[in-house]
Amino acid sequence: QIFVKTLTGKTITLEVEPSDTIENVKAKIQDKEGIPPDQQRLIFAGKQLEDGRTLSDYNIQKESTLHLVL
């Protein structure tokens, strides 16, 4: 699982696999929060994550925290 922290300070927990794409993660966030993926920007280690890449591409491991910017 990974954590996604929103600007409001809320933390969302997501069940993911390293092979999941960023697009996939955004879809999971939409399921939980109702935020359309095209409004979501995910930041990890100061980098904006691209939809077509996977979590493992960015070396995002379990218990990692991503930041969600709208």
Rank of each mutant, 00 (worst) to 15 (best):
P37W: 12
L55F: 03
E33W: 14
I43C: 15
L42E: 00
D31T: 10
P36W: 06
A27K: 14
I2P: 00
Y58M: 04
V16T: 05
D57W: 12
S19G: 11
L68H: 01
I29D: 00
T8E: 11
Q61I: 12
D20L: 05
Q30I: 03
Q30Y: 15
I35Y: 14
R41M: 14
K32H: 09
K10N: 08
G52F: 12
A45W: 09
P36E: 07
P37Y: 12
K47N: 10
L7N: 13
Y58L: 06
L42D: 00
D51T: 06
I60E: 01
E63K: 07
K26T: 02
I2S: 01
K28T: 03
S64R: 03
H67R: 08
D57V: 04
T65I: 15
T11F: 09
T65A: 04
E17G: 08
K10R: 13
L7E: 14
F44A: 03
A27Y: 14
E50A: 08
H67I: 13
S19I: 07
T11H: 06
T65S: 05
Q30L: 10
P18E: 10
E17I: 09
I12T: 03
G9P: 02
K10S: 07
K10E: 08
E63M: 11
S64Q: 09
K28A: 07
T8C: 15
V25I: 13
T13D: 04
R53V: 07
G46M: 04
I60N: 01
E63I: 04
E63A: 11
Q40H: 04
P37K: 15
S19K: 07
T65W: 09
D31A: 14
S56P: 03
G9T: 03
Q61E: 11
N59Q: 09
V69E: 10
D51H: 06
T65H: 15
D51Q: 05
T65V: 14
H67V: 13
L14N: 00
Q48W: 13
K10Y: 13
I43R: 06
D57A: 06
K32D: 03
K10C: 13
T54A: 06
P37L: 13
L70R: 09
K62H: 15
E63F: 14
T54Q: 07
Q30H: 13
Q39E: 10
T8N: 12
S56D: 09
V4C: 04
E17F: 12
V4T: 01
N59W: 05
L49Y: 01
I29Q: 00
S56R: 11
V25A: 02
A27G: 10
G34L: 05
L55T: 03
I12C: 03
E63Q: 11
Q61Y: 09
S19L: 09
V16S: 04
T13L: 10
Q48Y: 13
I60H: 01
D57Q: 08
S56W: 09
P36V: 06
D51A: 07
N24R: 14
P18A: 11
L70H: 09
Q48T: 15
E15P: 06
T8L: 11
T65E: 07
P36L: 07
I29H: 00
S19T: 12
V16W: 12
K26G: 01
T21H: 04
K32A: 12
P36C: 09
G34F: 04
V4D: 01
H67E: 12
N24Q: 14
E63T: 07
S56T: 10
Q40D: 01
I29C: 02
E17N: 11
K5V: 15
T21D: 03
V25D: 00
E63N: 14
Q40T: 05
R53Y: 14
T65L: 10
I12N: 01
S56C: 07
I35W: 12
T11I: 14
P36H: 11
I2G: 01
D31W: 09
T8Q: 11
